[in-house]
Amino acid sequence: MRILVLGGTAFVGRAIVADALREGFDVTLFGRGRTGAELFPGVPRLLGDRDTGDYAALREAGGGWDAVVDVSGYVPRHAGEAMAALGDRVGRYLFVSSQAVYARSGVGPGSDEDTPRRPPVRHTEVLDDDTYGPAKVACEDDVLARYGDRATIVRPGRVAGPHDVQGAFTYWVRRAARGGRVALPGRPEQPVQVVDSRDLARLVVRLLIDDRPGAFNAVGPAEPTTLAELIAVCAEVAGTRVELVPVPPDAVPPMFPLITPEAMWADRQRSSARARAAGLPATPLAVTAADVLAWDRERGEPPLDCGLSAAAEERLLGVAG
């Protein structure tokens, strides 16, 4: 199978390309060429820039592909320009969307892919909490309008695994590995859903092999998990002991890793039944945590852009008593 991956060298795209190559796919990459130059030697690369609308290399490339995997489409312009450049040279178009497309009210635990989505937003280049999900909705709609039954939508939840560039899961793995008293600006019973990047990649590749249309919630792990249970698993993997210490949410930076307001807890309890039936594996959370811990230590544990530094947490715990 010949596939084209739009963005295949950072985290999710990297995992998808690695899985596709193991499956024996003939892979071509399209991207800016700024990251992962050492990855996937021998894999053809078409250089372009979706931010500036530079698809010349894609338009000029000869032949076609059995499928395209769009990992880097965030606003409708991205999807529209890519589809225009590809024309009819692609069989299936698999768009990697997001759980952020779903409506935020009136949704209960166990909601599935038929849950109402948020109203689409088309004319924006700014992605924030108000526009990210609606822009993905617009992308989904455009892909479905163009390709119909040749369109596949994958909606990942929080993705975890080695090479994670965001660091939300990595923060808790690293923090649990230090052990001791842990500042928790949330409730221990909060539900958490994280999917291993390699499981997500396996689902994507399986959907391509089966030429399967439709929408799929790529969420995990297999069993319901709380925030306290996730931290406990991370500590067990690292061989440490932790004590969770409640701290006021307003005492920490906003958007704290994996912390979710209670009004949005149902968003962290989506059904993965359709994706499991289509081939989404269920890597144990302990395996994901162990692999992230090993990767993070191997790279030297660089500073993260989220959470609390050790010094800031120590000061906060001192106030908490």
Rank of each mutant, 00 (worst) to 15 (best):
S272E: 05
R89L: 12
A37M: 15
D267E: 14
V173Q: 03
R2H: 10
Q269M: 05
P116Y: 13
D211V: 06
R268Q: 10
K136I: 03
P281K: 08
I259M: 06
L6N: 04
R59T: 08
G279R: 13
G31V: 15
E229Q: 11
V90P: 06
F256L: 08
S272L: 02
M1N: 10
T240N: 05
A238C: 06
R181E: 11
Y93S: 03
A310L: 15
G167Q: 06
V204S: 02
V96H: 10
G167W: 06
E140Q: 06
F216S: 01
I16K: 07
T288A: 01
R32A: 15
L46H: 12
V159T: 06
V292K: 07
A310V: 15
R45E: 03
A235F: 01
R158F: 12
R297E: 13
P284T: 10
L29F: 12
R77C: 09
D149A: 15
A18H: 11
G148H: 13
R297I: 01
C234N: 00
D114Y: 05
D141C: 12
P213A: 04
A37D: 15
P249F: 09
R175T: 11
I231K: 04
G91K: 03
G108K: 11
A56N: 01
T225A: 00
P281V: 07
A79G: 06
E189T: 03
A251H: 08
A294F: 07
G307F: 10
D49R: 06
V71D: 01
A151I: 11
A100S: 04
G8R: 04
F25T: 12
A251W: 07
R2M: 03
P134W: 01
R77T: 10
L230F: 04
A282H: 03
F40W: 10
T35C: 05
